[in-house]
Design a protein around this nucleic acid. Structure first.
Lengths: 254, 254
DNA sequence: GGCGTCGTGCGTACGATGTACGCAGTCGAT
DNA sequence: ATCGACTGCGTACATCGTACGCACGACGCC
Protein backbone atom coordinates (compact mmCIF):
# COMPACT_ATOMS: atom_id res chain seq x y z
CA UNK A 1 0.00 0.00 0.00
CA UNK A 2 1.09 3.59 -0.38
CA UNK A 3 2.79 4.94 2.65
CA UNK A 4 1.66 8.19 4.16
CA UNK A 5 3.46 10.28 1.62
CA UNK A 6 0.85 10.89 -0.98
CA UNK A 7 -2.15 9.12 -2.25
CA UNK A 8 -4.24 8.84 -5.33
CA UNK A 9 -7.00 11.15 -6.44
CA UNK A 10 -9.84 10.97 -3.93
CA UNK A 11 -12.43 11.40 -6.64
CA UNK A 12 -11.58 7.95 -7.93
CA UNK A 13 -12.37 6.43 -4.58
CA UNK A 14 -15.53 8.47 -4.13
CA UNK A 15 -16.83 7.42 -7.52
CA UNK A 16 -16.13 3.79 -6.64
CA UNK A 17 -17.71 4.01 -3.23
CA UNK A 18 -20.78 6.02 -4.10
CA UNK A 19 -21.22 5.71 -7.81
CA UNK A 20 -23.34 3.19 -9.65
CA UNK A 21 -21.93 -0.23 -10.38
CA UNK A 22 -20.60 -0.34 -13.94
CA UNK A 23 -22.93 -2.07 -16.35
CA UNK A 24 -21.65 -4.73 -18.68
CA UNK A 25 -20.91 -3.43 -22.18
CA UNK A 26 -19.92 -5.02 -25.45
CA UNK A 27 -16.91 -6.88 -24.18
CA UNK A 28 -16.78 -10.42 -22.85
CA UNK A 29 -18.76 -11.08 -19.72
CA UNK A 30 -16.53 -10.56 -16.78
CA UNK A 31 -15.98 -13.40 -14.34
CA UNK A 32 -14.58 -10.99 -11.81
CA UNK A 33 -15.91 -7.97 -9.98
CA UNK A 34 -14.76 -5.51 -7.36
CA UNK A 35 -16.74 -7.14 -4.56
CA UNK A 36 -14.86 -10.39 -4.99
CA UNK A 37 -11.58 -8.53 -5.00
CA UNK A 38 -12.50 -6.60 -1.87
CA UNK A 39 -13.67 -9.75 -0.10
CA UNK A 40 -10.46 -11.60 -0.94
CA UNK A 41 -8.41 -8.64 0.23
CA UNK A 42 -10.29 -8.48 3.52
CA UNK A 43 -9.77 -12.18 4.06
CA UNK A 44 -6.05 -11.83 3.52
CA UNK A 45 -5.89 -8.80 5.81
CA UNK A 46 -7.85 -10.57 8.54
CA UNK A 47 -5.35 -13.41 8.44
CA UNK A 48 -2.06 -11.65 7.93
CA UNK A 49 -2.59 -7.96 8.54
CA UNK A 50 -2.71 -5.11 6.08
CA UNK A 51 0.88 -5.75 5.06
CA UNK A 52 -0.04 -9.15 3.70
CA UNK A 53 -2.44 -7.63 1.20
CA UNK A 54 -0.73 -7.60 -2.17
CA UNK A 55 -2.27 -7.48 -5.60
CA UNK A 56 -0.48 -10.70 -6.52
CA UNK A 57 -1.74 -12.36 -3.35
CA UNK A 58 -5.32 -11.35 -4.03
CA UNK A 59 -5.02 -12.57 -7.60
CA UNK A 60 -3.68 -15.91 -6.40
CA UNK A 61 -6.54 -16.26 -3.95
CA UNK A 62 -9.04 -15.62 -6.73
CA UNK A 63 -7.18 -17.74 -9.28
CA UNK A 64 -6.74 -14.89 -11.76
CA UNK A 65 -3.87 -12.81 -13.05
CA UNK A 66 -2.70 -9.93 -10.96
CA UNK A 67 -3.14 -7.36 -13.68
CA UNK A 68 -6.75 -8.26 -14.28
CA UNK A 69 -7.57 -6.77 -10.89
CA UNK A 70 -6.93 -3.34 -12.38
CA UNK A 71 -9.90 -3.67 -14.65
CA UNK A 72 -12.12 -3.48 -11.63
CA UNK A 73 -10.17 -1.51 -9.07
CA UNK A 74 -8.06 1.41 -10.28
CA UNK A 75 -5.33 0.91 -7.71
CA UNK A 76 -4.38 -0.38 -4.35
CA UNK A 77 -5.28 2.86 -2.60
CA UNK A 78 -8.79 2.64 -3.93
CA UNK A 79 -9.00 -1.00 -2.99
CA UNK A 80 -8.18 -0.16 0.59
CA UNK A 81 -10.83 2.54 0.65
CA UNK A 82 -13.30 -0.07 -0.49
CA UNK A 83 -12.11 -2.52 2.14
CA UNK A 84 -12.52 0.05 4.89
CA UNK A 85 -16.04 0.91 3.88
CA UNK A 86 -16.99 -2.73 3.53
CA UNK A 87 -16.03 -3.59 7.09
CA UNK A 88 -17.71 -0.40 8.25
CA UNK A 89 -20.86 -2.09 7.02
CA UNK A 90 -20.60 -4.55 9.92
CA UNK A 91 -21.13 -1.80 12.46
CA UNK A 92 -24.45 -1.90 14.26
CA UNK A 93 -26.37 1.31 13.64
CA UNK A 94 -29.42 1.26 15.87
CA UNK A 95 -28.91 1.76 19.58
CA UNK A 96 -32.44 2.77 20.51
CA UNK A 97 -32.81 -0.42 22.52
CA UNK A 98 -30.66 1.38 25.11
CA UNK A 99 -32.17 4.25 27.06
CA UNK A 100 -30.30 7.53 27.14
CA UNK A 101 -27.38 8.86 25.23
CA UNK A 102 -24.87 7.48 27.68
CA UNK A 103 -25.91 3.87 27.39
CA UNK A 104 -26.22 4.26 23.65
CA UNK A 105 -22.75 5.68 23.30
CA UNK A 106 -21.39 2.88 25.46
CA UNK A 107 -23.14 0.31 23.28
CA UNK A 108 -21.76 1.90 20.15
CA UNK A 109 -18.27 1.94 21.64
CA UNK A 110 -18.39 -1.74 22.50
CA UNK A 111 -19.69 -2.69 19.08
CA UNK A 112 -17.04 -0.57 17.43
CA UNK A 113 -14.37 -2.19 19.56
CA UNK A 114 -15.53 -5.65 18.54
CA UNK A 115 -15.39 -4.79 14.90
CA UNK A 116 -11.89 -3.41 15.21
CA UNK A 117 -10.72 -6.50 17.03
CA UNK A 118 -12.29 -8.67 14.33
CA UNK A 119 -10.47 -6.73 11.63
CA UNK A 120 -7.49 -5.30 13.45
CA UNK A 121 -5.84 -4.22 10.21
CA UNK A 122 -8.26 -1.29 10.26
CA UNK A 123 -6.05 0.19 12.95
CA UNK A 124 -3.04 0.02 10.70
CA UNK A 125 -4.57 1.70 7.70
CA UNK A 126 -3.18 5.17 7.51
CA UNK A 127 -5.55 7.86 8.59
CA UNK A 128 -4.51 9.90 5.62
CA UNK A 129 -7.40 8.14 4.01
CA UNK A 130 -10.48 10.04 4.95
CA UNK A 131 -12.48 9.12 1.90
CA UNK A 132 -15.74 7.97 3.38
CA UNK A 133 -18.16 5.66 1.72
CA UNK A 134 -21.82 4.92 2.41
CA UNK A 135 -21.22 2.58 5.34
CA UNK A 136 -18.75 4.83 7.03
CA UNK A 137 -21.02 7.83 6.73
CA UNK A 138 -23.93 5.81 8.05
CA UNK A 139 -21.93 4.90 11.14
CA UNK A 140 -20.93 8.48 11.81
CA UNK A 141 -24.50 9.61 11.30
CA UNK A 142 -25.72 6.96 13.75
CA UNK A 143 -23.27 8.05 16.41
CA UNK A 144 -23.99 11.71 15.85
CA UNK A 145 -27.69 10.95 16.13
CA UNK A 146 -27.13 9.56 19.60
CA UNK A 147 -25.85 12.90 20.83
CA UNK A 148 -28.35 14.93 18.85
CA UNK A 149 -30.83 16.76 21.04
CA UNK A 150 -29.02 16.25 24.35
CA UNK A 151 -28.35 19.93 24.76
CA UNK A 152 -24.99 20.25 23.02
CA UNK A 153 -24.27 22.65 20.20
CA UNK A 154 -23.45 21.24 16.77
CA UNK A 155 -19.82 22.00 17.42
CA UNK A 156 -19.88 20.20 20.75
CA UNK A 157 -21.64 17.27 19.15
CA UNK A 158 -18.99 17.01 16.46
CA UNK A 159 -16.24 17.14 19.07
CA UNK A 160 -17.98 14.55 21.22
CA UNK A 161 -18.32 12.08 18.37
CA UNK A 162 -14.68 12.61 17.56
CA UNK A 163 -13.69 12.03 21.17
CA UNK A 164 -15.58 8.78 21.49
CA UNK A 165 -14.59 7.31 18.14
CA UNK A 166 -10.99 8.28 18.79
CA UNK A 167 -11.14 6.62 22.16
CA UNK A 168 -12.37 3.38 20.63
CA UNK A 169 -9.60 3.39 18.05
CA UNK A 170 -6.98 3.92 20.69
CA UNK A 171 -8.40 1.31 23.05
CA UNK A 172 -8.72 -1.23 20.30
CA UNK A 173 -5.17 -0.62 19.29
CA UNK A 174 -3.89 -1.26 22.77
CA UNK A 175 -6.00 -4.32 23.29
CA UNK A 176 -5.13 -5.79 19.94
CA UNK A 177 -1.42 -5.22 20.24
CA UNK A 178 -1.09 -7.49 23.19
CA UNK A 179 -2.72 -10.36 21.32
CA UNK A 180 -0.07 -10.23 18.62
CA UNK A 181 2.56 -12.85 18.96
CA UNK A 182 5.42 -10.60 17.95
CA UNK A 183 4.23 -7.73 20.09
CA UNK A 184 3.56 -10.05 22.98
CA UNK A 185 7.08 -11.28 22.45
CA UNK A 186 8.46 -7.75 22.56
CA UNK A 187 6.41 -7.02 25.65
CA UNK A 188 7.56 -10.17 27.38
CA UNK A 189 11.16 -9.37 26.57
CA UNK A 190 10.81 -5.87 27.96
CA UNK A 191 8.93 -6.97 31.03
CA UNK A 192 11.62 -9.52 31.70
CA UNK A 193 14.21 -6.82 31.26
CA UNK A 194 12.49 -4.56 33.72
CA UNK A 195 12.07 -7.31 36.24
CA UNK A 196 15.69 -8.17 35.90
CA UNK A 197 14.99 -11.72 34.80
CA UNK A 198 16.32 -11.41 31.28
CA UNK A 199 19.88 -12.62 30.82
CA UNK A 200 21.33 -9.32 29.71
CA UNK A 201 19.18 -7.07 31.86
CA UNK A 202 21.55 -6.70 34.72
CA UNK A 203 24.10 -5.20 32.43
CA UNK A 204 22.19 -2.24 31.09
CA UNK A 205 18.81 -1.72 32.70
CA UNK A 206 18.80 1.31 34.94
CA UNK A 207 16.82 -0.29 37.74
CA UNK A 208 15.40 2.25 40.10
CA UNK A 209 15.67 5.17 37.74
CA UNK A 210 12.05 5.09 36.64
CA UNK A 211 10.22 3.89 39.75
CA UNK A 212 6.66 4.77 38.81
CA UNK A 213 7.11 3.41 35.33
CA UNK A 214 8.24 0.09 36.74
CA UNK A 215 5.06 -0.20 38.77
CA UNK A 216 2.99 0.63 35.68
CA UNK A 217 4.82 -1.72 33.36
CA UNK A 218 3.40 -4.89 34.82
CA UNK A 219 -0.09 -3.57 34.26
CA UNK A 220 0.48 -2.19 30.77
CA UNK A 221 1.98 -5.36 29.48
CA UNK A 222 -0.67 -7.58 30.97
CA UNK A 223 -3.11 -8.67 28.29
CA UNK A 224 -5.76 -9.65 30.83
CA UNK A 225 -6.09 -6.05 31.98
CA UNK A 226 -7.08 -4.54 28.68
CA UNK A 227 -10.79 -5.34 28.75
CA UNK A 228 -11.15 -3.68 32.12
CA UNK A 229 -9.04 -0.81 30.90
CA UNK A 230 -11.37 -0.25 28.02
CA UNK A 231 -14.27 0.09 30.44
CA UNK A 232 -12.30 2.35 32.75
CA UNK A 233 -11.36 4.72 29.97
CA UNK A 234 -14.81 4.71 28.46
CA UNK A 235 -16.40 5.55 31.80
CA UNK A 236 -14.00 8.43 32.30
CA UNK A 237 -14.79 9.80 28.85
CA UNK A 238 -18.52 9.38 29.37
CA UNK A 239 -18.29 10.95 32.81
CA UNK A 240 -16.59 13.96 31.27
CA UNK A 241 -19.26 14.30 28.62
CA UNK A 242 -21.94 13.74 31.25
CA UNK A 243 -20.63 16.65 33.30
CA UNK A 244 -20.90 18.89 30.28
CA UNK A 245 -24.40 17.72 29.39
CA UNK A 246 -25.49 18.21 32.99
CA UNK A 247 -23.99 21.68 33.05
CA UNK A 248 -25.85 22.47 29.86
CA UNK A 249 -29.14 21.27 31.32
CA UNK A 250 -28.53 23.32 34.45
CA UNK A 251 -27.76 26.42 32.45
CA UNK A 252 -30.81 25.80 30.35
CA UNK A 253 -33.02 25.49 33.39
CA UNK A 254 -32.06 28.93 34.69
CA UNK B 1 9.45 -0.14 6.48
CA UNK B 2 7.96 -3.42 7.44
CA UNK B 3 4.25 -3.45 7.35
CA UNK B 4 2.34 -4.68 10.37
CA UNK B 5 2.81 -8.29 9.56
CA UNK B 6 5.85 -9.23 11.52
CA UNK B 7 8.88 -7.52 12.76
CA UNK B 8 12.41 -8.22 13.70
CA UNK B 9 13.68 -9.55 16.98
CA UNK B 10 12.93 -7.00 19.70
CA UNK B 11 16.11 -7.85 21.52
CA UNK B 12 18.10 -6.26 18.75
CA UNK B 13 16.27 -2.98 19.23
CA UNK B 14 16.51 -3.15 23.01
CA UNK B 15 20.25 -3.71 22.83
CA UNK B 16 20.59 -0.76 20.49
CA UNK B 17 18.42 1.52 22.59
CA UNK B 18 19.73 0.64 26.01
CA UNK B 19 23.06 -0.97 25.48
CA UNK B 20 26.43 0.69 25.50
CA UNK B 21 27.67 2.41 22.40
CA UNK B 22 30.03 0.09 20.55
CA UNK B 23 33.66 1.00 21.12
CA UNK B 24 36.00 1.29 18.18
CA UNK B 25 37.98 -1.89 17.64
CA UNK B 26 40.79 -2.88 15.31
CA UNK B 27 39.22 -1.83 12.07
CA UNK B 28 39.40 1.50 10.34
CA UNK B 29 37.94 4.44 12.20
CA UNK B 30 34.36 4.81 11.16
CA UNK B 31 33.20 8.09 9.68
CA UNK B 32 29.63 7.10 10.30
CA UNK B 33 27.58 6.29 13.37
CA UNK B 34 24.05 5.42 14.25
CA UNK B 35 23.22 8.88 15.54
CA UNK B 36 23.96 10.43 12.18
CA UNK B 37 21.84 7.82 10.48
CA UNK B 38 18.95 8.40 12.88
CA UNK B 39 19.21 12.18 12.49
CA UNK B 40 19.18 11.93 8.71
CA UNK B 41 16.22 9.59 8.85
CA UNK B 42 14.29 11.94 11.11
CA UNK B 43 15.01 14.85 8.81
CA UNK B 44 13.69 12.93 5.84
CA UNK B 45 10.62 11.82 7.77
CA UNK B 46 9.90 15.34 8.99
CA UNK B 47 9.93 16.52 5.39
CA UNK B 48 8.25 13.70 3.50
CA UNK B 49 6.60 11.45 6.07
CA UNK B 50 7.63 8.00 7.20
CA UNK B 51 7.12 6.63 3.70
CA UNK B 52 9.91 8.82 2.38
CA UNK B 53 12.44 7.17 4.68
CA UNK B 54 14.43 4.71 2.61
CA UNK B 55 17.85 3.32 3.29
CA UNK B 56 19.05 4.63 -0.07
CA UNK B 57 17.62 8.05 0.69
CA UNK B 58 19.36 8.20 4.03
CA UNK B 59 22.61 7.10 2.44
CA UNK B 60 22.28 9.80 -0.21
CA UNK B 61 21.66 12.43 2.44
CA UNK B 62 24.80 11.34 4.28
CA UNK B 63 26.85 10.91 1.15
CA UNK B 64 27.61 7.24 1.80
CA UNK B 65 26.66 3.92 0.28
CA UNK B 66 23.35 2.43 1.25
CA UNK B 67 24.81 -0.84 2.46
CA UNK B 68 27.21 0.83 4.84
CA UNK B 69 24.24 1.83 6.97
CA UNK B 70 23.89 -1.80 7.97
CA UNK B 71 27.20 -1.72 9.80
CA UNK B 72 25.62 0.60 12.31
CA UNK B 73 21.93 -0.23 12.26
CA UNK B 74 20.88 -3.86 11.87
CA UNK B 75 17.79 -3.08 9.86
CA UNK B 76 15.11 -0.62 9.06
CA UNK B 77 12.86 -1.80 11.89
CA UNK B 78 15.57 -1.08 14.40
CA UNK B 79 16.26 2.26 12.79
CA UNK B 80 12.66 3.27 13.27
CA UNK B 81 12.76 2.22 16.92
CA UNK B 82 15.76 4.49 17.32
CA UNK B 83 14.01 7.32 15.54
CA UNK B 84 10.98 7.01 17.80
CA UNK B 85 13.02 7.12 20.94
CA UNK B 86 15.09 10.02 19.70
CA UNK B 87 12.09 12.27 19.14
CA UNK B 88 10.71 11.11 22.47
CA UNK B 89 13.72 12.85 23.90
CA UNK B 90 12.17 16.17 22.93
CA UNK B 91 9.31 15.70 25.35
CA UNK B 92 9.36 17.97 28.35
CA UNK B 93 9.50 15.91 31.54
CA UNK B 94 9.09 18.29 34.46
CA UNK B 95 5.66 19.78 35.05
CA UNK B 96 6.07 20.77 38.66
CA UNK B 97 5.79 24.41 37.67
CA UNK B 98 2.07 23.70 37.35
CA UNK B 99 0.07 23.17 40.51
CA UNK B 100 -2.04 20.06 40.77
CA UNK B 101 -2.27 16.91 38.73
CA UNK B 102 -4.88 18.37 36.42
CA UNK B 103 -2.84 21.32 35.25
CA UNK B 104 0.22 19.09 34.99
CA UNK B 105 -1.58 16.54 32.84
CA UNK B 106 -2.89 19.33 30.64
CA UNK B 107 0.61 20.75 30.27
CA UNK B 108 1.96 17.31 29.38
CA UNK B 109 -0.81 16.83 26.84
CA UNK B 110 -0.10 20.11 25.13
CA UNK B 111 3.61 19.46 25.00
CA UNK B 112 2.99 15.98 23.65
CA UNK B 113 0.67 17.38 21.02
CA UNK B 114 3.31 19.85 19.88
CA UNK B 115 5.89 17.14 19.53
CA UNK B 116 3.58 15.00 17.47
CA UNK B 117 2.72 17.90 15.21
CA UNK B 118 6.42 18.67 14.82
CA UNK B 119 7.10 15.06 13.81
CA UNK B 120 3.77 13.89 12.47
CA UNK B 121 5.27 10.70 11.08
CA UNK B 122 5.20 9.40 14.65
CA UNK B 123 1.49 8.91 14.15
CA UNK B 124 2.06 6.71 11.16
CA UNK B 125 4.58 4.39 12.75
CA UNK B 126 2.83 1.15 13.42
CA UNK B 127 1.98 0.59 17.01
CA UNK B 128 3.19 -2.94 16.69
CA UNK B 129 6.44 -1.45 17.77
CA UNK B 130 6.34 -1.22 21.51
CA UNK B 131 10.04 -1.47 22.07
CA UNK B 132 10.71 1.41 24.42
CA UNK B 133 14.00 3.13 24.82
CA UNK B 134 15.33 5.40 27.55
CA UNK B 135 13.53 8.54 26.39
CA UNK B 136 10.22 6.85 25.92
CA UNK B 137 10.36 5.26 29.34
CA UNK B 138 11.34 8.58 30.88
CA UNK B 139 8.26 10.20 29.36
CA UNK B 140 5.94 7.49 30.62
CA UNK B 141 7.53 7.69 34.05
CA UNK B 142 7.06 11.46 34.11
CA UNK B 143 3.38 11.19 33.19
CA UNK B 144 2.81 8.39 35.65
CA UNK B 145 4.52 10.48 38.32
CA UNK B 146 1.95 13.23 37.79
CA UNK B 147 -0.86 10.87 38.79
CA UNK B 148 1.12 9.20 41.53
CA UNK B 149 -0.24 9.92 44.97
CA UNK B 150 -3.53 11.46 43.90
CA UNK B 151 -5.53 8.65 45.41
CA UNK B 152 -5.73 6.24 42.50
CA UNK B 153 -4.66 2.62 42.65
CA UNK B 154 -1.71 1.51 40.55
CA UNK B 155 -4.11 -0.05 38.13
CA UNK B 156 -6.14 3.15 37.85
CA UNK B 157 -2.97 5.14 37.39
CA UNK B 158 -1.85 2.89 34.55
CA UNK B 159 -5.24 3.19 32.90
CA UNK B 160 -5.28 6.96 33.33
CA UNK B 161 -1.88 7.39 31.71
CA UNK B 162 -3.03 5.22 28.86
CA UNK B 163 -6.21 7.24 28.45
CA UNK B 164 -4.43 10.58 28.31
CA UNK B 165 -1.59 9.51 26.02
CA UNK B 166 -4.08 7.81 23.74
CA UNK B 167 -6.15 10.93 23.64
CA UNK B 168 -3.17 13.02 22.60
CA UNK B 169 -2.29 10.57 19.82
CA UNK B 170 -5.79 10.67 18.49
CA UNK B 171 -6.13 14.44 18.70
CA UNK B 172 -2.78 14.96 17.04
CA UNK B 173 -3.76 12.63 14.26
CA UNK B 174 -6.94 14.55 13.57
CA UNK B 175 -5.26 17.92 13.76
CA UNK B 176 -2.38 16.88 11.56
CA UNK B 177 -4.50 15.25 8.91
CA UNK B 178 -6.22 18.43 8.00
CA UNK B 179 -2.92 20.18 7.41
CA UNK B 180 -1.93 17.64 4.77
CA UNK B 181 -2.45 18.84 1.27
CA UNK B 182 -3.70 15.53 -0.06
CA UNK B 183 -5.99 14.96 2.89
CA UNK B 184 -7.22 18.53 2.74
CA UNK B 185 -7.89 17.86 -0.89
CA UNK B 186 -9.85 14.73 -0.10
CA UNK B 187 -11.77 16.58 2.58
CA UNK B 188 -12.54 19.47 0.26
CA UNK B 189 -13.76 17.09 -2.40
CA UNK B 190 -16.01 15.31 0.06
CA UNK B 191 -17.32 18.49 1.60
CA UNK B 192 -18.13 19.76 -1.88
CA UNK B 193 -19.89 16.51 -2.58
CA UNK B 194 -21.98 16.76 0.54
CA UNK B 195 -22.85 20.34 -0.13
CA UNK B 196 -23.87 19.45 -3.62
CA UNK B 197 -21.38 21.81 -5.20
CA UNK B 198 -19.19 19.17 -6.81
CA UNK B 199 -19.97 18.49 -10.47
CA UNK B 200 -20.89 14.86 -10.07
CA UNK B 201 -22.52 15.15 -6.68
CA UNK B 202 -26.10 15.52 -7.82
CA UNK B 203 -25.90 12.18 -9.53
CA UNK B 204 -25.02 9.96 -6.64
CA UNK B 205 -25.04 11.74 -3.28
CA UNK B 206 -27.97 10.67 -1.16
CA UNK B 207 -28.75 14.14 0.13
CA UNK B 208 -30.96 14.07 3.18
CA UNK B 209 -30.23 10.47 4.04
CA UNK B 210 -27.68 11.29 6.75
CA UNK B 211 -28.98 14.55 8.19
CA UNK B 212 -26.94 14.71 11.38
CA UNK B 213 -23.79 13.69 9.59
CA UNK B 214 -24.24 16.54 7.15
CA UNK B 215 -24.38 19.03 9.99
CA UNK B 216 -21.24 17.52 11.51
CA UNK B 217 -19.27 17.35 8.28
CA UNK B 218 -18.71 21.08 8.01
CA UNK B 219 -17.17 21.08 11.45
CA UNK B 220 -15.08 17.95 11.05
CA UNK B 221 -13.51 19.09 7.87
CA UNK B 222 -12.73 22.54 9.11
CA UNK B 223 -9.06 22.83 10.00
CA UNK B 224 -9.61 25.92 12.14
CA UNK B 225 -11.73 23.95 14.57
CA UNK B 226 -9.13 21.40 15.57
CA UNK B 227 -7.26 23.40 18.17
CA UNK B 228 -10.47 24.10 20.03
CA UNK B 229 -11.47 20.50 19.63
CA UNK B 230 -8.28 19.37 21.27
CA UNK B 231 -9.11 21.49 24.28
CA UNK B 232 -12.70 20.32 24.36
CA UNK B 233 -11.72 16.69 24.32
CA UNK B 234 -8.95 17.14 26.85
CA UNK B 235 -11.28 18.90 29.26
CA UNK B 236 -13.80 16.12 28.97
CA UNK B 237 -11.15 13.52 29.67
CA UNK B 238 -9.77 15.50 32.59
CA UNK B 239 -13.27 16.07 33.94
CA UNK B 240 -13.87 12.35 33.87
CA UNK B 241 -10.65 11.65 35.70
CA UNK B 242 -11.40 14.47 38.12
CA UNK B 243 -14.73 12.91 39.02
CA UNK B 244 -12.97 9.69 39.87
CA UNK B 245 -10.26 11.38 41.90
CA UNK B 246 -12.90 13.36 43.77
CA UNK B 247 -14.88 10.23 44.43
CA UNK B 248 -11.73 8.59 45.75
CA UNK B 249 -11.02 11.50 48.06
CA UNK B 250 -14.58 11.46 49.32
CA UNK B 251 -14.43 7.75 50.01
CA UNK B 252 -11.12 8.21 51.74
CA UNK B 253 -12.48 10.93 53.97
CA UNK B 254 -15.25 8.72 55.31
C1' DG C 1 -21.89 -12.13 -42.49
C1' DG C 2 -18.00 -8.99 -42.06
C1' DC C 3 -15.79 -5.29 -39.93
C1' DG C 4 -14.72 -2.13 -36.38
C1' DT C 5 -14.90 -0.91 -31.65
C1' DC C 6 -15.48 -1.84 -26.93
C1' DG C 7 -14.24 -4.52 -22.98
C1' DT C 8 -11.78 -8.39 -20.47
C1' DG C 9 -7.78 -11.01 -18.96
C1' DC C 10 -3.13 -10.90 -18.25
C1' DG C 11 2.10 -11.39 -19.60
C1' DT C 12 6.10 -8.61 -19.70
C1' DA C 13 8.78 -5.18 -18.03
C1' DC C 14 10.19 -1.55 -15.10
C1' DG C 15 10.99 1.38 -11.02
C1' DA C 16 11.39 1.27 -6.16
C1' DT C 17 12.80 -0.82 -1.77
C1' DG C 18 15.16 -3.78 1.87
C1' DT C 19 19.00 -6.41 2.41
C1' DA C 20 22.16 -10.95 1.76
C1' DC C 21 26.60 -11.73 0.25
C1' DG C 22 31.20 -11.03 -0.58
C1' DC C 23 35.19 -8.12 -2.16
C1' DA C 24 38.69 -4.60 -1.08
C1' DG C 25 40.98 -1.94 2.06
C1' DT C 26 42.29 -0.25 6.87
C1' DC C 27 43.65 -1.05 11.53
C1' DG C 28 45.26 -3.44 15.79
C1' DA C 29 47.27 -7.47 18.15
C1' DT C 30 50.69 -10.95 18.13
C1' DA D 1 55.06 -9.44 8.65
C1' DT D 2 50.84 -12.01 9.26
C1' DC D 3 46.29 -12.73 10.68
C1' DG D 4 41.91 -11.44 12.15
C1' DA D 5 38.67 -7.75 13.21
C1' DC D 6 36.25 -4.02 11.24
C1' DT D 7 34.53 -0.62 7.70
C1' DG D 8 32.52 0.78 3.31
C1' DC D 9 29.89 -0.59 -0.34
C1' DG D 10 28.88 -2.83 -5.16
C1' DT D 11 26.18 -6.44 -6.98
C1' DA D 12 22.37 -9.10 -7.04
C1' DC D 13 18.03 -10.77 -5.66
C1' DA D 14 13.23 -11.04 -3.92
C1' DT D 15 9.17 -8.48 -3.50
C1' DC D 16 5.67 -5.20 -4.82
C1' DG D 17 2.65 -1.83 -7.55
C1' DT D 18 1.49 -0.95 -11.96
C1' DA D 19 2.27 0.97 -17.13
C1' DC D 20 1.85 -0.89 -21.48
C1' DG D 21 0.26 -3.59 -25.01
C1' DC D 22 -1.20 -8.13 -27.01
C1' DA D 23 -4.85 -11.62 -27.69
C1' DC D 24 -9.44 -12.70 -27.67
C1' DG D 25 -14.52 -12.40 -26.93
C1' DA D 26 -18.76 -9.73 -27.40
C1' DC D 27 -21.63 -6.27 -29.43
C1' DG D 28 -23.33 -2.83 -32.82
C1' DC D 29 -23.53 -1.22 -37.39
C1' DC D 30 -23.52 -1.64 -42.32
Amino acid sequence: MSQPASRSDPSRSLALLWGPRPQSGRGPQSGLNSSQIVAAAIQIADTGGIGAVTMRGIADTLGVGAMSLYRHVPGKDELIDLMMDTVMGEQYLDYTAETGWRRQLAAYARNALERRLRHPWILDVSHNRTVQGPNWVAVLDAVATIVDGIGLSDWEMAATVELVTGYVDHAARNEFELTQADVADASAVQLAWWEGSAPAAATWMPRGQFPVHERMTRIWYNQDEQQDMFTFGLERVLDGIDMLVTARATTHDE
